[in-house]
Design a protein around this nucleic acid. Structure first.
Length: 483
RNA sequence: GGGGCUGUGGUCUAACUUGGUAUGAUGCGAGGUUCGGGACCUUGUGACUCCCGGUUCAAAUCCGGGCAGCCCCA
């Protein structure tokens, strides 16, 4: 009971205290666990199953775009890492190094990859000779290490994390830009349609762009406390890396040119956003499209009805196999116990079947998102289950969208922004100068979470003066507290 | 970057102020009884009290350092 009380307390604190609720629900639902290494978490099978689903969907989408998977080494020689100045400056404070093996020191220390631009582009410079070698679209699903010094948080800020890193090369600027936009759209679609999270497509400010990029775009999500968090991103790198790593090709006219490049990524951080956004006082709430177990059947029986109930439950389970149904046939737990456990684990839909249901030739459906119970004829179950799963998916997204809209404000003055910035994202006229952004960081602990992009990737234009410095606004930008 | 809190079987916890090898629950194993919202009974199992050092006849308890987790502020 003590265990239960503790759990309930922490879980019921979601609204009041996210910081307590969030790690608790991750541990109790067996998504992940802490490890002996600070900032490095253990992804347990249930959590890994969600990651596998994310990988499966995104991987398929990438392949459709002509991206091929590959694998590059975990270790990167120091000399390679140092070639692109801005990139190095951005990453070296967080790099973990291998300096010795066994008892001997290495001549050149090796970086554990914080990202793989440097080692991949060294190969690219060899592989790309002619315009016929382009475009080159490679991706790897791997792990990277960034030794952050802020307090780690499972998924949201971990020192090692899983992600994909796509690195594409094109013969022209136009092609590269178009491709980076398609990638961002793909991620945006994934975030909204599969994760059921409202995602804002934005261009990053000068201050927040990726180290080495010409410009960066991302999908930004809002956490329940109104702080923004960066989701998947897509960067246009121009020819910066091509020049640093000597990636050149002979064009159709026989002239040597530097190639144009993009990079893009989505990480397991999104699992954290998913957990925090959809979860409630009972635990996780998973969107059907990413739930390892979308539907669970809980049989209810007494000794004399056990045989009959189980037979029917197995029958239904088989019939519904394609929806990913799991039959909880454990005998050592009572139905009530199972209800609670599966709710904690966020299973979107529960089917209850007991003697009374069999009599009426129906079952009880219970939605995780609303808690709503309904009675459904067994004969209609095959149509009803996908319908309800779909409704849950939509409902989660609509809730997320509404939340983001409610928490989106505009401000005309700095004072107004100061009032609104706690718990909202605030749209203002902005000059896009790093100095202005640093000022806001210092004074309000807030930063830009991007310049809004429309469907055609036009960045929102400024219509007056930057509300921070008063110089002409070159764009509109969202300011908010962020993760 | 600055400040604070915490660390005891797998989990949650009592004892810490006032030093004497650890309380209770949960979990786990076995058996029985139960099963429509975390049932119950019997019995068994499980902790060199985060690590290193110091003080002491004696340390979970006091002191120092480390590690880890959490919170607040910049």
């Amino acid at each position: 009971m003590a265990d239960k009380e503790k759990l309930t307390q922490a879980l019921q604190a979601k609204k009041a205290n996210m910081d307590d609720w969030y790690p608790e629900v991750i541990l109790k639902s067996e998504l992940a666990d802490y490890s002996k290494v600070s900032g490095c978490i253990v992804l347990r099978p249930y959590g890994y199953a969600i990651w596998e689903k994310i990988v499966a969907v995104v991987d398929e989408k990438l392949k459709k775009m002509g991206v091929k998977n590959c694998y590059f080494p975990l270790l990167i020689p120091e000399s390679l890492l140092a070639k692109e100045q801005e990139h190095v400056k951005g990453f070296t404070p967080e790099v973990a190094w291998v300096t010795e093996t066994g008892n001997s020191k290495l001549d050149e220390k090796l970086a554990i990859r914080p990202t793989s631009e440097t080692i991949m582009y060294d190969s690219y410079s060899k592989w790309i000779q002619s315009w016929r070698d382009l475009p080159l679209k490679l991706n790897q699903w791997n792990n990277v290490v960034r030794w952050e010094f802020k307090h780690p948080k499972p998924f949201l800020r971990s020192r090692e994390f899983l992600w994909n890193e796509g690195h594409t090369v094109f013969a022209s600027e136009k092609e590269a830009i178009k491709d980076s936009q398609e990638v961002l759209d793909m991620y945006h679609n994934f975030v909204e349609e599969y994760m059921a999270l409202a995602g804002a497509k934005v261009k990053k400010s000068e201050n927040e762009k990726f180290a080495g990029a010409v410009y960066s775009m991302s999908v930004e999500c809002m956490m329940p406390d109104g702080k923004m968090i960066q989701g998947p991103d897509s960067h246009f790198d121009g020819q910066k890396f091509a020049k640093a790593y000597d990636i050149k090709f002979l064009n159709k006219d026989g002239k040597m040119e530097h190639a144009w490049q993009n990079t893009f990524a989505i990480s397991w951080r999104m699992i954290g956003v998913l957990v925090a956004s959809h979860g409630d006082d009972r635990g996780l709430v998973l969107p059907p499209k990413l739930a390892p177990i979308p539907v669970v059947i809980v049989p209810i029986y007494k000794d004399d009805t056990k045989k009959e109930v189980m037979k029917k439950a197995e029958e239904i389970s088989k019939e519904m196999k394609k929806f990913g149904v799991h039959l909880d046939d454990r005998e050592e737990y009572t139905p009530g116990w199972k209800f609670n456990e599966w709710e904690l684990k966020g299973v979107p839909l529960r089917i209850e079947i007991g003697p009374k249901d069999i009599e009426k030739k129906s079952v009880v459906l219970v939605r995780r998102d609303t808690g709503e119970k309904s009675f459904v004829k067994m004969s209609e179950l095959k149509d009803k289950v996908p319908e309800v799963l779909d409704a849950i998916q939509k409902n989660l997204f609509e809730k997320s969208k509404k939340f983001l809209e409610e928490r989106t404000k505009t401000a005309k003055t700095y004072a107004e922004m100061k009032k609104l910035v706690d718990g909202n994202r605030v749209l203002v006229d902005f000059c896009n100068e790093p100095a202005c952004e640093e000022k806001v960081k210092g004074e309000l602990s807030a930063k830009t979470t991007g310049i809004p992009l429309d469907d055609k990737f036009n960045a929102a234009k400024g219509t007056g003066k930057c509300i921070i410095c008063g110089k002409p606004a070159t764009c509109k930008a969202y300011f908010s507290k962020s993760y």
